[in-house]
Design a protein around this nucleic acid. Structure first.
Lengths: 342, 342
DNA sequence: GTGAAAGCGCTAACAC
DNA sequence: GTGTTAGCGCTTTCAC
């Protein structure tokens, strides 16, 4: 079926010749079918079918200076934390014919810079980032381009363009206060060191603030390589329970670790919540499946992705610039979910 | 810093002028630095720095007919099943300067066709698919292009190009025989209907074969909307235990459902493995975290991704065509992991 | 509603 | 080791 001479591929000219029309008609039949008469469209379509034509988007992007690609950077694809958000984003964009270009930064802000530069080379029409903490050059590059940008999973006083998320600080503070209200005396927090992970750091700060409000002393475990893994939760539990005055509840920076901690407790013969209560963060499916089900903070992960998609699609459709400050950071909120684990 | 006239972006010419060289020198400084003298390279680099130049990959791709993009289609990003594979792939490719373009098909073979067409438009230099069951047009499109293609998570007698995975049939058959060897009499299988999911169907077939070898009657639950979710596992357990002759062990088509089943058993007061034993498939972190830990089939998820990356990088480096048939399908094997749940 | 010509920004091919 | 020229395949612009 190949008729192309130069590169061996079917080109738009080949389809046009076969249909007996100009290339522009083929182009329009694909992109703006309304501008082409039904019979023409029919001829073009069958010519495309017969030749197995696949448009070269690189050429279209080059000429029009507008791709259908949206670039997204997430810290990791390894666990489910950002999966819902990516999924919501992917769905919301696909519905409008956009293709997601995903890269993972491994929670490394320096890596994010070079990854972004690489992604920008693909001429995306918008960029989605995770979090609001970025290297200064990220902001500079994106602002210079004037692309729609959505930062997710956090709020910001001064987003690069738009932000969609919730207050990690408030969420952690509220959970801590809720635990205190439930009567827990020694409330511990487990996570990574604050410099390692920005959102985790904000949660830690929220926890500290709550304890300060209550006039209590914080009690934290920060493991250098703490991550969203079951093993992290188990190690944290072991450390805490070995202390002279172990806590009566541990607030984990994420559900995965909290779940790992709960399973470890079951194995160690520690009863939840009577001997040690556990709270998590995220309200992943794991939280409900845990025995006992985990008290946690519900985050609208998929909704964040869907909203990011909506903001982008709107911006691209209207071509509108950033709106007033109050609208630039969209707070989707959170919810304290009290279950049996705490 | 913008000096571009036509589109408002910094172009290679702008960098070249600033550095006082020709555009080709800038191009070479970026792509083949060895061909440019150190002093020239230095001047070019600082000009790029000063202007904030980001190469337009669409132009390069168009001219050279070779991008640095590799397209991958996975069924879902929602759970961790394919996360390790994607991660291994992503790592293995990034090391060689390739960018992964990921799309999800939602386990739908028809959707895969249009998604692939879309992805091919981005001019990827290779394609990674999940599974070996595809719409005929997928094979046709990819063969016509002559791109390196790797099908993952399964083996194939006749892959489109290369396949990297393991025998889902053998894995399920071996696990079933292992359960029989452990003394279980009524071995049930839980999954989706065979027409819904190809790899699951092969596992079901392997299970059936094993029971046929043993001269026993199979006992299956196939839920229409069975998926890699905790809820699917719970529903399967409820259905099975309501039967007149409930099984003494259930082999789940994946660890996520098996785990959900185990948690449901704990809630329902069903003791594992004495009242009901449970086996899974995948050996995800969940399997180890479960109480009791799950007997399962270990799949080298990340290694599949790494191997796929290696095959692609090699193919692209050497430009070699498909090798002899025996090498086209790489069997990474599996391992029956016997833990306390069965 | 349809077509012809021009050119997006880069790199391959060929000079020097 | 560096520059010049041409053109990748599409879409924009302007005619009709």
């Amino acid at each position: 079926m190949k008729t192309g001479r130069s590169t061996g591929h079917v080109r738009m000219v080949d389809v046009a010749q076969r249909a007996g029309v100009g290339t522009i008609t083929v182009s329009r039949a694909l992109r703006t079918p309304g501008q082409v008469s039904p019979e023409m469209r029919e001829r073009v379509m069958s010519a495309m079918q017969a030749t197995g034509y696949v448009p070269n988007l690189a050429a279209g992007t080059l000429k029009s200076q507008r791709s259908r690609v949206i670039a997204a950077i997430v810290p990791t694809l390894r666990n489910t934390i950002f999966a819902e958000t990516v999924d919501g984003l992917s769905e919301g964009l696909r519905e409008h014919g956009f293709q997601l270009l995903i890269a993972n930064s491994g929670y490394c802000l320096e890596a994010e810079v070079s990854i972004l530069r690489n992604l920008l080379g693909q001429q995306p029409v918008a960029v989605v980032l995770t979090g609001t903490a970025h290297d200064p050059s990220v902001r500079a590059m994106l602002r210079a381009r004037g692309l729609p940008v959505v930062e997710t999973w956090d709020l910001s006083e001064d987003p690069i363009d738009r932000a969609v998320g919730f207050s990690n600080f408030d969420a952690a503070r509220n959970m801590t206060l809720a635990l205190a209200a439930r009567g827990y005396q020694r409330i511990a927090f487990a996570g990574a060191p604050p410099e390692r992970e920005h959102r985790g750091a904000q949660r830690l700060a929220g926890y500290r603030q709550a304890l300060a409000d209550l006039g209590r002393r914080p009690q934290t475990v920060t493991l250098e390589d703490f991550g969203a893994t079951f093993a992290s939760g188990e190690r944290a539990v072991r450390q805490l329970m070995a202390r002279v005055k172990p806590p009566d509840v541990v607030f984990f920076v994420n559900d995965v670790a909290a779940f790992g901690a709960a399973q470890a407790c079951a194995r160690l013969g520690i009863t939840i919540p009577s001997q040690l209560a556990i709270a998590g963060f995220g309200d992943f499916e794991l939280a409900r499946a845990s025995n006992p089900p985990l008290t946690t903070v519900r985050i609208p992960g998929e909704y964040i992705g869907r909203t990011a998609a909506r903001l982008i699609v709107e911006r691209l459709a209207t071509g509108s610039k950033a709106t007033v400050s109050s609208d630039r950071s969209v707070d989707l909120g959170f919810e304290i979910v009290e279950r049996e684990s705490a």
